Amino acid sequence: MSSTDLNGMYLIQQVSDMTGLSKQVIRKWEERYHLVQPKRLENGYRIYSEVDINFLLNVKTLSGQGHTVKRAVEITKARNIVGDAIPEPSHSLQHPAILNDYVFRLLEKGAHCDELEIHLVLQQAYHAYGLADFLTSVIVPFLNEVGNKWHRNEWNEYQEAVSSLVTRDFLVQIRRNYQFRENASLIVGACLPYELHEIPLHILLLQLMQKGFKTMLVGAYPAPGSIESLVEKLKPAKVLLSATTTTPFDKDPDLLKRLDQFAVDNKHIDFYLGGTGALDYTMNKTLRAIHVTNSIEDVLR
């Protein structure tokens, strides 16, 4: 039986797949702390709602931050993080995120490395939400949870890779089919050399395409010098550089200095550098021409 058959309710095995909690732990938190109160099917099987799963995930997050389970349950109940309703798609999601049915289904399919089902759920969510809310309410929360599961060793490399790659390919498909005016300003997005994580750039470029820009992406792990060559050839209005880790700077200590000089030499182009790794590495550094930011509003100025 699938979550679709249950009309937004989930069996305990599905909840276990989504949350990374064992069925034993879920039942223990229910019975000992009265955290959730699942309904029962005629055969006695527990079924859980979106609210139940969000409570379980919130307690798991808080306990991972050092709180006892008892205290995590108290905080969760006091916060009333989900109450009686799931927020509308346009609401921003902060961690611990309030997740929706599409994210739960993606986590379930990702746990089983089911590429086709992941793609189908993404397709359904995209048509249901529209691009803007699809990115903020489905893609970002899903990828955050995938990353959390990877860092906590709840998912193996294959589970993480399948979920990330199917999501990336789906975003690429949207970008390729997106219509823009021929006279639209061009933005080039580029991962730095040695950087493997390109999905944040796909998301950002799609958001910028909604603002009327034409975009081009230099994907993961570009060859040294390829970014500069492409920029000189295309003459874009803006260049977005991305590094989610500090690996590009660790591997090539002169990389940032060269790129900043390149930006100085091309003052007619606005250069931006973002990503967690970039922000960490440049924290105490002064750049002459590259703007360091993780804000799309800065890029749009």
Rank of each mutant, 00 (worst) to 15 (best):
A128S: 15
A78S: 15
H197G: 02
T76K: 01
G20Y: 07
Q124D: 13
S242E: 04
T4I: 11
G225I: 09
L273R: 04
H291K: 13
K235M: 12
T247N: 11
E232D: 14
E198Y: 06
K267P: 03
E42P: 07
V138T: 14
G44F: 05
V188C: 08
T167K: 01
C113T: 14
R176H: 14
A190N: 00
N294C: 08
Q24V: 15
R181M: 11
I118R: 00
A97S: 12
A263E: 06
L116G: 06
E182G: 10
R288I: 08
L206G: 06
V59N: 00
Q124V: 05
G44R: 14
G83D: 12
Q65L: 14
S22H: 02
R32L: 00
T247E: 11
T215H: 07
P38R: 01
V36A: 09
L6D: 08
G20K: 04
D101H: 11
V82W: 03
E50W: 00
R79G: 12
Q13C: 05
L205A: 06
H291E: 07
F249G: 02
A111P: 00
I203N: 06
L300R: 09
P222L: 08
G225W: 09
F271K: 02
F180I: 15
G8Q: 05
T246L: 03
K70S: 15
F180Q: 10
P248I: 07
L171I: 08
L106V: 08
M9S: 10
V218M: 12
A85M: 13
N294V: 06
L11H: 05
L273A: 08
P38T: 06
A237E: 15
L171N: 04
G20H: 01
H34D: 13
H34N: 15
V140F: 00
G212H: 10
A243H: 04
E160R: 03
G130R: 11
L259E: 03
Y158R: 09
Q124H: 10
E115S: 14
Y102D: 11
V103I: 11
L256A: 04
T68R: 03
L186V: 10
I187D: 01
D270R: 13
P89K: 05
Y178G: 01
V239E: 01
E232L: 14
L300Y: 10
D114R: 03
K251Q: 15
K109C: 05
L21F: 02
E117N: 10
R40A: 10
N148D: 12
E74R: 09
L171R: 04
K70C: 07
H268K: 12
E160W: 06
E50P: 02
D17R: 10
R152P: 00
G219Q: 04
I98K: 08
Y272N: 07
K251F: 11
G130I: 07
E154D: 13
T245F: 10
Y126Q: 10
K23P: 09
L35G: 05
L11P: 00
E117C: 03
Q261L: 11
